[in-house]
Write a protein that binds this DNA or RNA. Structure first.
Lengths: 189, 189
DNA sequence: CTTGGCTATGCAACGAGTTGCATAGAAGGA
DNA sequence: TCCTTCTATGCAACTCGTTGCATAGCCAAG
């Protein structure tokens, strides 16, 4: 049971359709979870069957009808239970790490390229999340907002997202530099 | 195909049994991948069937016999192909983020506890990885080692591991503080 | 002397995530 | 006009990861 709670969490902020959720979870909802549309539609069906969310049909003209979902009392209770239970530790799981692990044994050229691509992807995400942060806190400065803001949850997870991307970017650039410099100083095979 | 390459990467450094790999992958092999023993035994069987690794039986006294595996030429080729292919972006996937996302809507007490537990777990891992780094680079300082060291792959992934854990620790402590302070200044429900 | 942990391997069932595909009308650009 | 993209939902097959269990002898601590 992993995605269910992320969906319930997202639906706490209002009514959303599967499609809307899918777009949010595609980016990673400010880095707090990621999922594909298929997963979300399936999960919503299951959640509805179990009474944790309820949906209402909205008839639209000029575009397909949709179903908007909201969390029920049972769903809120489920979330509270989840929040109280212990979470298991998280791991990084990234193909790039495996590649770097063996980069000095096999070719480095392609790995360096990938590191730099990742770095600029991370940079882009940092920008994006930075804008999101500014938008979430409005006029207030961060300290002020975190002390008195109404809805700080998304802001807090977004902070983690940014920090993660910054760490990722810095590491990618550092490693790319290290590998590049070794190419010039070492005999390349 | 995800774990296979991590296993091949690990076996590049020598001959290991499933059990030895399991211990390394339990910690997370310096944060470059994580897997359970069952997965590893299954993967080793598959890799052997496909000729990417080869194993030899070692008869032992006073303890069960074991099979030591090494990478074949085909396995090395497979790894090179993998390293050249594009890797897809990575996401954080952590229950704690979901909990923080909704912490201001439901209870915060248990979330704060979990954040602090996580922070000290991260601290412990930072210590551990720090020792591993010192061990890997021996007498040399970091710059020197990264320029001329023989086997820097594990060092580089370990650097990412440390940075990740530091980011995690800092975020956990920050968020715990924020949530605590809100408890005193806000009307708690 | 019993209990628990370590070495060592593996099967079976299940849960979670990914890939591929199908439908279908409307809007907008080449 | 044709092609693509957007809205909107979902099934089916598959791969990957987790949980639970089984075996079995050795060693150390209580």
């Amino acid at each position: 049971m992993a995605l269910r709670h992320a969906v319930l969490a997202a639906l706490l902020d209002g009514e959303y359709s599967g499609y809307q959720l899918a777009k949010a979870f595609d980016v990673g909802v400010a880095n707090f979870w990621h999922a594909l549309p298929q997963q979300l539609y399936a999960e919503l069906t299951r959640l509805e069957k179990e009474g944790l969310v309820a949906g209402r049909q909205v008839i639209q003209e000029n575009r397909p009808n949709k179903r908007l979902f909201h969390v029920t009392d049972a769903g809120r209770a489920e979330l509270e239970e989840f929040a109280a239970a212990v979470a298991k530790p998280s791991f990084i799981r990234d193909d790039l790490l495996v590649k770097v692990q063996v980069a000095d044994r096999i070719g480095t050229a392609s790995v360096i390229e990938q590191l730099e691509e990742r770095a600029s992807a991370a940079e882009a995400k940092i920008e994006l999340l930075g804008k999101l942060l500014r938008q979430l806190r409005g006029d207030a400065d961060e300290e002020e907002f975190l002390r008195r803001g109404e809805r700080i949850g998304p802001y807090l997870t977004c902070l983690r997202g940014i920090a993660f991307e910054q760490g990722h970017r810095d590491w990618c650039l550092r490693i790319a530099t290290v590998l590049r410099e070794r190419r010039t100083t070492h005999a390349e095979r």
